[in-house]
Nucleic acid binder design. Structure first.
Length: 423
RNA sequence: GGAGAGUUGACCGAGCGGCCGAAGGUGACAGUCUUGAAAACUGUUGAGGCGUAACCCGCCUCCGCGGGUUCGAAUCCCGCACUCUCCGCCA
């Protein structure tokens, strides 16, 4: 939720952001109009209510005829108060709903436009020249099957499309990635957390995942619970309705969780292998930080992500996502995309979003300031996920179908330097 | 799944249908005293909103959440969530 006070004082700033995102800018004026109506109704209600309260005190003290007369008056007033309250509540709900429909303000510098309008900030590492090496490029699934690491067929038999089993070294490889990620995060001062993956509607809504992309989310109707697509949801919800003490620096958490995504809008995309699946695991960094420090925290996340990808010896590029491709909550999103040799394209491996005060405002997460409280900022970012298996297998494949293991992961794989196909 | 008890401010804990945003205590902060500290004493100490752009000030809302009864609800009624205890079931 954006700051209503800001929308009132600088509506053009909000319109500008809406344009950058490709969203409706007329909503800004609707918010202004509805808010004016809300305030008028509220004032009227409050005046009537004040009168009712003072009359009520008179009733309590009056006796006999005087009391009877006062009761008549206050009964009339009670009707009026009720009606005015209903008006005020309705106007408030309407204003709030409109305000909630506005995505976070894109940060200055974020490219305008949609999914294809991202800016490439830099490229690190060089994709291998497989032809020059004389290595025939196999895709991750072919490699994974050769290693007996990935079983899509049985995944489909048991659960359907986009489900899979990780078997043997595949399972070990995922655990290696996640454990390495957890280790790095912990060393960087993040508190390790294993989080719930089923959350209540308020939490899902508060984190901004029930907006445009609500089709992406699994919902358990019988229990009124949502399956989360990232531990960001549980980590953001963790401090709902709390006033935090950030005087000692940001609160940093590293959440480990299974992630569930319906992939409703991606029919036909990435159907082969485990690039785009309904269920996977992820370690996510999440910080609660003072508003003025959020951009620096965002950079910090990116640096940690890059250090992971470098340790895994994966070529990648960093992109600044365009405004129209930001999630509802994000003001800026920086992704690291790893090279995918089999398709000769880049594929998202990490994503880091600065949500500024947007999420915290919805979830009522504040800190104590000089006078009063103010919303904190939240920042989130990937530090390891199942999909990295794809990049590792493909980028580190050898001519014989074996796969080189970067030193960082070896301690988690019994020290092996190479994964060898099972014949 | 069944039965019961509970949910009040940073924390503990009172609370009669009518000056109750809420006694008392703890903690925190400030002051007095002290060389300093402790103790003692005194004072301050919740959030959101409207009037209003801001101050002062005034007013409204918030006693788990949502409804209802009433001129008036922390207090009475209903529903929901959560916590605890006992029983049952599963592991």
């Amino acid at each position: 939720m954006i700051d209503l006070a800001l929308l009132r004082s600088d509506p053009e700033r909000v319109r500008e952001s809406q344009r950058m995102r490709g969203d409706d800018e007329a909503v800004v004026d609707r918010v202004l109009a509805t808010d004016a109506r809300r305030r008028a109704a509220l004032t009227e209600f409050e005046q009537a209510r004040a009168e009712q309260k003072s009359l009520g005190r008179d009733v309590a003290q009056a006796q006999g005829d005087e009391k009877a007369a006062l009761l008549v008056r206050s009964k009339e007033l009670a009707q009026r108060v009720k009606a005015l309250q209903a008006d005020a509540d309705a106007a408030d709900a309407e204003a709030r709903e409109l305000l909630m429909s506005i995505g976070n303000l894109a940060e200055p510098g974020v490219p305008a436009g949609g999914a294809d309008d991202f800016a490439v900030l830099r490229t690190e590492g060089t994709p291998r020249d497989f032809a020059a090496e004389g290595v025939p490029v196999r895709d991750h699934l072919e490699l994974g099957e050769g290693l007996k690491a990935i079983d899509m067929e049985r995944g489909a038999k048991v659960s359907g499309a986009r489900f899979y089993y990780l078997t043997g070294v595949g399972a070990q490889l995922e655990l290696a990635i996640l454990n390495a990620a957890m280790g790095v995060a912990t060393a960087q001062g993040f508190l390790p957390m294993i989080t719930p993956t089923l959350v209540r509607p308020e939490t899902m809504r508060g984190t901004g995942f029930l907006g445009n992309h609500s089709d992406e989310v699994y919902y358990l109707e019988k229990d009124e619970l949502y399956l989360t697509g990232t531990s960001e949801v549980a980590l953001a919800g963790y401090h709902t309705d709390e006033i935090l003490d950030l005087s000692g620096g940001p609160l940093r958490y590293a959440g480990w969780s299974a992630c569930y995504r319906r992939e409703a809008g991606s029919a036909g995309r990435d159907t082969r292998g485990i690039i785009r699946v309904h269920q996977f695991h992820k370690v996510e960094m999440f910080s609660y930080v003072r508003s003025e420090d959020a951009a620096a925290e965002h950079e910090r996340f990116l640096a940690i992500q890059e250090s992971m990808l470098q340790a895994l010896e994966l070529p990648y590029r960093v992109i600044d996502t365009a405004a129209g491709d930001l999630g509802t909550s994000a003001a800026r999103k920086l992704d690291c995309e790893g090279w995918l040799p089999s398709q000769e394209r880049w594929m998202e491996l990490t994503s880091a979003s600065n949500c500024t005060t947007f999420q915290a405002r919805r979830l009522a997460i504040r800190e104590r300031g000089e006078d009063g409280t103010r919303a904190v900022a939240t920042v989130n970012g990937t530090i390891g996920t199942t999909r990295w298996i794809v990049a590792l297998l493909e980028n580190h494949q050898q001519a014989d179908g074996s796969v080189y293991v970067p030193p960082m992961l070896r301690p988690y794989l019994g020290g092996v330097e190479t994964l060898t196909p099972v014949l």
